[in-house]
Simulated assay, not measured.
Amino acid sequence: MYARIITSQTQPGKTDEATRIWNESVVPILRQQKGFVGAYMVGDRASGKGVVMTLWESEDDARAIDTSGVYQRSIALFAQVLAGPPTREQYEVLVKV
């Protein structure tokens, strides 16, 4: 299993809007992707910092959202609420409890 970690910063007061966009627009897209296992979105309302972790069956499945354009289209949905471009990393899940 592989995890993709995306860290972002919302503009002041935009955390609820970012959460709405995630739930209404991004989650349905992710559920349609091959190998999608699940996701978590966590954040700090006071600072606006947020972290999304998506889980994928394989490394190829995790990387496919880049080559298919899904990542780029999803990030574009947040253009009006993010304070800057998000960062992303990918890891192999070594232990699952």
Rank of each mutant, 00 (worst) to 15 (best):
A39S: 15
V52T: 07
G35N: 08
A64W: 02
I6C: 08
F78G: 06
A46I: 06
Y2Q: 02
K34R: 15
V97D: 11
K14Y: 07
V42T: 14
W22C: 02
L77R: 03
D61A: 12
I29W: 02
S68Y: 07
L94V: 12
Q11S: 03
T87W: 08
R20I: 10
A64Q: 06
L94I: 06
R31E: 13
I29R: 00
A79D: 14
I21A: 04
V27A: 00
I75P: 00
T67P: 03
E24Y: 05
G35S: 05
V97P: 11
I5D: 03
A3E: 06
V37N: 05
L55G: 09
D66N: 08
V26S: 04
Y71M: 13
K49F: 11
V70T: 12
Q11M: 13
G13A: 03
E24D: 14
G43V: 02
Q80H: 14
R4I: 03
K14T: 09
G69F: 09
P28K: 05
A64K: 03
S58N: 02
A79R: 12
G48K: 01
V27I: 15
G84A: 11
Q32G: 08
D61Q: 01
T15I: 12
V93L: 12
V95A: 12
P85W: 00
V97R: 09
F78I: 06
A39M: 10
G35F: 10
A83G: 15
L94Q: 12
A83V: 07
I65P: 00
S74K: 04
V95C: 01
R20S: 15
A18S: 15
V37P: 03
M1D: 12
Q72H: 01
G13K: 05
A64L: 05
V95R: 10
W56V: 01
Q11E: 14
R88L: 11
A62D: 07
Y91A: 12
G13I: 10
E59Y: 04
K49T: 06
V37S: 12
D66E: 13
R63A: 11
A79V: 04
E17H: 10
Q80C: 00
A18I: 02
S47Q: 05
I29T: 12
R45A: 13
D16R: 10
V70K: 02
G38N: 11
G43Q: 08
R20T: 14
K96P: 00
A39P: 00
E59S: 12
K49A: 10
I21R: 04
V52C: 09
A3Y: 04
R4D: 09
V81S: 03
Y71G: 04
T19L: 15
V27C: 06
F36G: 06
A79T: 14
R4F: 03
L55R: 13
W22Y: 15
G69N: 07
D61F: 04
P12Y: 09
A83M: 02
A83K: 05
P12V: 07
V95E: 09
S25E: 15
A3S: 13
L30W: 13
L77P: 06
L82T: 08
G35Y: 07
P86M: 07
Y2F: 15
A3K: 02
S8E: 11
A46R: 08
E17P: 10
E59L: 10
L77Q: 11
V42H: 06
G69C: 05
V27P: 02
E17N: 09
V26M: 14
T19E: 15
V97I: 01
K49P: 04
Q32H: 03
R4L: 10
L55S: 06
G69P: 10
E17G: 07
